[in-house]
C-alpha cells in the first residue's frame, strides 16, 4: 500500500461581526475602561450583557455600570497556554462575578501559581494598554485586596461607539484524503488517470471516492481511463476568480474520459473559446510539476455523437 498522503490545511478568516446595541455598548465601554451590565427582567444584572433575558428571552436594554473588581466563582489552572489565549505565561481561567453583577464573566487571571488562586478570591480588571472595543481590552484579571471599586456612574452612552469587531480565527488541520483518493493522486503523478470500478454496478468512478455512491460498496479494482475524452457540457468563464491565474475568457468543461462513467472537470485550451462545443474530443496537456493536467486540448478527432455522451453530462 502506498504511503498515506497528508498535508496541512489552515482554515483562517477575519470574520466581521456586527454587534447590535447591547454588545456595542459593552465592548465600547471596555475601550473606555467602563464595565457595563444589563438588567434582566428578574432584577439581576448580567455581566457580560446580552440583548435578551436568558430566562424569558424578552428583549432587555437597560444598561448599568458595574465595578471592575469582583470575586472568583470558579477557576482552573492552565499551565500550558494555547494559541490565542489571553496570556502566554501560565494563568488561571476564572469566572468572575464583578461587584454589582449577578452573573459571572469568563476570563484569565494572572497569578503566580495555582496555590495563589482560590474560589472566593478578590480580583480586579487589568486593562490592556491598547484597547479597541473587544473582550481582549480586558488583558486579564489580577489579584486585588482593596475595597470594591465604585462605578463611575456611566450612562452607557458613548459618542463614538463601535458597531463591529473583526474576529480573526485560524484552525490548523492535517488533511489526508483517504485510501482511494491517495491511489488516484499517486497515479496522477505518473500522468495516468486511474479510476475505480464498482464491483456491483461495474461503473468506473473518476476520481474514485472510496465508495460507489449508488451501491454503497467499496470500490477497489483500478481502471486506467483516458487520456482522451469528450466535452459533454461547458460554460465560458468571463470573470476572473480569486486566486486563479487564468486569463478570461476561458472554457470550463465537463469531460468524460474514455472508459469513465462520469465526467470530471477541466479547462479547455488550444482552441478559441467560442469554438468549444459539446462533443468536442480532447486530451490532457500537462505542465511540469503540476498535479493535474493544466488543461485539455482538441485531439482533432470528429466530434462525438450526442447519444454517446448524453448520460455523462
Amino acid at each position: 500500500m502506498p504511503e498515506v498522503l497528508k498535508a496541512p490545511l489552515a482554515v483562517e478568516f477575519p470574520f466581521t461581526r456586527s454587534l447590535g446595541p447591547v454588545q456595542s455598548a459593552f465592548l465600547t465601554g471596555l475601550r473606555e475602561r467602563v464595565v457595563l451590565g444589563v438588567k434582566a427582567k428578574d432584577g439581576r444584572t448580567l455581566v457580560p450583557p446580552v440583548e435578551y433575558d436568558p430566562v424569558t428571552a424578552e428583549e432587555i436594554r437597560d444598561l448599568v455600570e458595574v465595578a471592575p473588581t469582583g470575586t472568583v466563582t470558579t477557576w482552573a489552572w492552565n499551565h500550558e497556554p494555547r494559541r490565542g489565549q489571553p496570556l502566554d505565561t501560565p494563568f488561571a481561567w476564572v469566572l468572575v462575578r464583578l461587584d454589582g453583577a449577578d452573573t459571572a464573566l469568563l476570563h484569565a487571571l494572572d497569578a503566580p501559581g495555582p496555590d495563589a488562586v482560590h474560589t472566593g478570591m478578590r480580583v480586579r480588571v487589568r486593562w490592556a494598554e491598547e484597547r479597541s472595543g473587544a473582550i481582549t481590552d480586558i488583558a486579564c484579571f489580577e489579584p486585588y485586596d482593596g475595597e470594591p471599586a465604585g462605578p463611575t456612574g456611566h450612562s452607557g452612552e458613548f459618542a463614538d461607539a463601535i458597531s463591529g469587531i473583526v474576529a480573526f480565527a485560524r484552525l490548523d488541520y492535517t488533511y489526508s484524503p483517504g485510501r482511494a483518493q491517495s491511489d488516484y493522486i499517486h497515479a496522477l503523478s505518473e500522468r495516468r488517470t486511474v479510476g475505480e470500478r464498482c464491483p456491483s454496478c461495474r461503473k468506473v468512478y473518476v476520481p474514485p471516492r472510496g465508495a460507489c455512491p449508488t451501491c454503497g460498496v467499496a470500490t477497489a479494482e483500478h481502471v486506467e481511463v483516458g487520456p482522451r475524452g469528450t466535452v459533454t457540457t461547458f460554460c465560458i468563464v468571463n470573470i476572473k476568480a480569486k486566486n486563479l491565474d487564468i486569463e478570461v475568457p476561458y472554457v470550463y468543461a465537463h469531460i468524460a474520459l474514455d472508459g469513465a462513467d462520469l465526467a470530471l472537470h477541466g479547462r479547455i485550451g488550444g482552441i478559441p473559446y467560442d469554438q468549444v462545443r459539446m462533443g468536442l474530443r480532447v486530451e490532457p496537456v500537462w505542465t511540469e510539476g503540476a498535479r493535474y493536467p493544466d488543461h485539455y486540448r482538441p485531439t482533432g478527432e470528429p466530434d462525438a455523437e450526442y447519444d454517446t455522451y448524453k448520460e455523462l453530462l
Partner: peptide
C-alpha cells in the same frame, strides 16, 4: 472553497458549477 490539499482548485467560481448544467 477552502483550500483542501491535493484537490483541483475550483476553476470557475459559484456560477461555473451551474452554468454547464444550464447549457445541458
Amino acid at each position: 472553497s477552502l483550500p483542501i490539499p491535493f484537490q483541483q482548485p475550483l476553476l470557475a467560481g459559484a456560477g461555473g458549477f451551474f452554468a454547464p448544467h444550464v447549457r445541458a
